[in-house]
Amino acid sequence: MKLLELRHLSTHYVSARGARVTRAVDDVSLTVGEGETLGIVGESGSGKTTLALSLLRLLPPAARIVSGEIWFEGEDLLTKSHREMRRVRGKRIAMILQDPLASLNPLFTVGDQVAEPLRVHEGASRGSAWARARELLRAVRIAAPETRVREYPHQLSGGMRQRIVGAIAISCGPRLLIADEPTTSLDLTIQAQYLQLLRDLQRDRGLSMIFITHNLGIVARMCDHVAVMYAGRLVEAGPVARIFSSAAHPYTQALLESIPRMADGRKRLTAIDGQPPDPVALPPGCAFHPRCPKVLDRCRKEAPPEVRVAASHTSRCWLAS
């Protein structure tokens, strides 16, 4: 069953004088099923974070959702009032950001911050909210939650802080968890712990997840489906196993080939030429064409449409159509 469905969503940034329009998210359609994990992969400036913020309608003032629909649990989020959106955010859709230190308020104790959404969304009393906060800390495997609830964020390590952020995210029993580069600031062994924790939480609570990352390894380990973004567009989407074994878009193929693999030793890497495009001045036609090894004449002039390559596998490339 579909939990979330985006239909032709476009979000644009308009510069102060309205002179420049940046198509940060351009005509993106995708779905997330119940209990599924979707990975959204892209480089900086590809629009993956703007896409996530569009879902929550937490965009900065310069950004505007110009078209599309966001269906979540049978309702279009774009038709909701701000008051109604507030009841969705944090309660039914939660978010984990990259930097746990910035996500936590340094002036409040861990207990206060974990209990806050419970008190706001469910009107829980202070006592019962704190009791649940201790349970939540136990759920994210923090040792000695009774003493930790009274501590402040600066007294905790990076890994522990990110687990607190996780506890806040799951506190109201959301259906969908959006994680934006949640482990980028963590060390390898701590990252492994955290990914394991997220997987367990997802299984135990039947969560759906969206993982926003630039790291294909995280996608390989965590996700069922993957959507690859380039210059604001979804260039390829499909089941993870299929994309990793038979990617249809040259960008996805090149990305997969350019990553060093442990088993390959010192074999030369296949690099992608050129630089990522400037989101303000995208090349005409397919935005990837200046770097594409398989470029056709047509790619320089016309942007390719989304084509179904196989069951639930789509690609935006002239070669695929």
Partner: peptide, 15 residues
């Protein structure tokens, strides 16, 4: 999480 939506935030910010 902050409650003010995009449109409300922008009009207040503009003012």
């Amino acid at each position: 999480m902050n409650g003010s939506g995009p449109a409300a935030g922008s009009s207040r910010a503009a003012a």
